[in-house]
Amino acid sequence: MRRLPVYLLLDTSGSMTGEPIEAVKNGVQMMMHSLRQNPQAIETAFVSIITFDSEAKQIVPLTDLASFQMVDIKASGVTSLGAALALLADKLETEVTMTTLEQKGDWKPLIFVMTDGIPTDNWQQGYSKLKAVNKGLIVGCAAGQGADDAILRQITNSVVRLDSADSESISKFFQWVTASISTTSTKVEESGKEVTGLDQLPPPPSELVIVA
């Protein structure tokens, strides 16, 4: 069974306190609810959540949609994006299966990185570790005015921007992530082709501006 690994890297730094963090929690819940209705996604997509504030933590390991249970998240601390990228690199190595003679491996992972700030650690170090192992598509999302999409653009060619980190915009972002996972799970199942860029994902809603 070839899985479509989906990693959500979510910024849970102090600036996300209040409305944004609640919107993120809701967004993940709605996303899981919606994906569970999709027969292809429920069989193919596996989701993991990595949060980053003063440190990076994998709060949900790579889990199938049927077993997935959301863990409570709280906002505090700074923005250790580099640590999150490094942790992602570790998890890609241990959780994603490569194709061997014995088994067909997983599909290339789909990675969404959402941040509302500027990294406070050495993000380049985490990024170079990630670059060495990652074969999947990374989509960056700069949420709100405080986010620096210039750094995300150095990490990936696929970057979207949310002008505001309010609950409305964050909810739209998660709807788009949901549609992207649905589309990709259908696409890999039907054509065996993996997505390589933003142009192959569903068109984002007007709240999301493609910046790269």
Binding site: M98, T99, G105, D106, K108, K135, G192, E194
Partner: peptide, 8 residues
């Protein structure tokens, strides 16, 4: 058969 699957 492709290395990461899907290569035909």
């Amino acid at each position: 058969i492709g290395e990461f699957g899907g290569g035909t």
